[in-house]
Simulated scan of single mutants.
Amino acid sequence: MTLAGYKELELEDREAVNAFLRADPPRTSELTFTNLFMWRHHYRPQWRAEAGCLLLALAPNGQEPFGLPPTGAGDKLAAARALCADLSQAGARPSLQRVGQDLAQALAAAGGFRAQEDRDQSDYVYLAADLAALPGRRYHRKKNHYNKFAKNYQFEYRALEPPLVGRVLEMQESWCALRECHLDASLASEARAVYEALSHFGELDYRGGVILIEGRVQAFSLGEPLNPDTAVIHIEKGNPAFEGIYAAINLLFVERAWSAMTYINREQDLGLEGLRKAKESYLPQHMVPKYVVTPEFT
Score class of each variant (00 low, 15 high):
Phe33Gly: 07
Gly91Asn: 10
Arg27Cys: 13
Ser95Lys: 15
Cys53Trp: 01
Ser88Cys: 14
His42Glu: 03
Val125Glu: 01
Asp229Pro: 01
Gly91Val: 14
Leu222Pro: 00
Gln63Glu: 14
Arg138Cys: 05
Ser95Gln: 13
Glu8Ser: 12
Pro45Lys: 06
Gly52His: 04
Ala104Ile: 04
Asp75Asn: 09
His140Cys: 01
Gly271Val: 03
His140Lys: 13
Leu3Thr: 00
Ser259Tyr: 08
Val17Trp: 09
Leu226Pro: 03
Leu77Ser: 11
Phe242Tyr: 08
Met38Tyr: 03
Gly202His: 00
Arg81Gly: 08
Leu160Lys: 00
Tyr126His: 11
Glu170Tyr: 13
Leu226His: 02
Thr71His: 08
Glu30Thr: 04
Ala23Trp: 00
Lys76Val: 05
Tyr6Lys: 08
Gln63Ser: 06
Lys279Phe: 01
Val210Ser: 12
Val288Trp: 05
Tyr124Ala: 12
Leu68Trp: 05
Glu8Phe: 03
His286Trp: 03
Gly244Arg: 04
Ala177Thr: 14
Tyr206Gly: 06
Leu204His: 07
Arg119Lys: 15
Phe201Pro: 07
Arg256Gln: 14
Asp269Asn: 08
Ile245Met: 10
His145Ile: 13
Lys76Met: 04
Ser88Gln: 15
Ala278Gly: 11
Glu190Tyr: 15
Ala188Ser: 13
Gly74Lys: 05
Arg14Asn: 04
Cys53Thr: 06
Glu280Cys: 13
Pro94His: 05
Ala177Leu: 09
Ala4Cys: 10
Gln285Thr: 02
Arg119Asn: 09
Gly111Lys: 09
Asn265Phe: 00
Leu169Tyr: 04
Ala177Lys: 14
Val293Met: 07
Ala80Gly: 12
Glu15Thr: 11
Asp118Val: 12
Trp175Tyr: 10
Ser281Pro: 03
Ala16Glu: 14
Ala257Phe: 11
Val125Arg: 03
Leu169Arg: 11
Asn61Asp: 12
Met171Lys: 07
Gln121Ala: 15
Pro162Cys: 15
Leu178Phe: 11
Glu15Val: 11
Ala129Val: 15
Met287Glu: 04
Ala191Tyr: 11
Glu267Lys: 01
Tyr124Pro: 05
Ala132Phe: 10
Lys7Pro: 03
Arg256Phe: 03
Ala110Val: 09
Arg167Phe: 11
Val194Trp: 07
Tyr246Glu: 02
Leu55Ala: 05
Glu280Pro: 03
Pro228Tyr: 04
Pro289His: 10
Gln105Ser: 10
Ala110Trp: 03
Val168Ser: 06
Asp130Lys: 15
Arg93Asp: 13
Ala80Cys: 14
His234Pro: 00
Gln121Glu: 12
Glu243Ser: 13
Tyr263Met: 02
Ser88Lys: 11
Gly215His: 05
Asp102Trp: 02
Lys151Gly: 10
Met171Gly: 08
Glu255Met: 06
Leu127Ala: 14
Thr230Asp: 00
Gln268Val: 08
Val217Leu: 03
Leu187Asp: 02
His200Ser: 13
Pro26Val: 12
Met38Gly: 06
Leu77Arg: 10
Phe253Ile: 03
Glu255Tyr: 07
Ala104Glu: 07
Tyr139Glu: 09
Ser221Tyr: 05
Asp130Glu: 15
Arg40Val: 05
Gly274Ala: 01
Ala241Pro: 00
Tyr43Pro: 01
Lys277Pro: 03
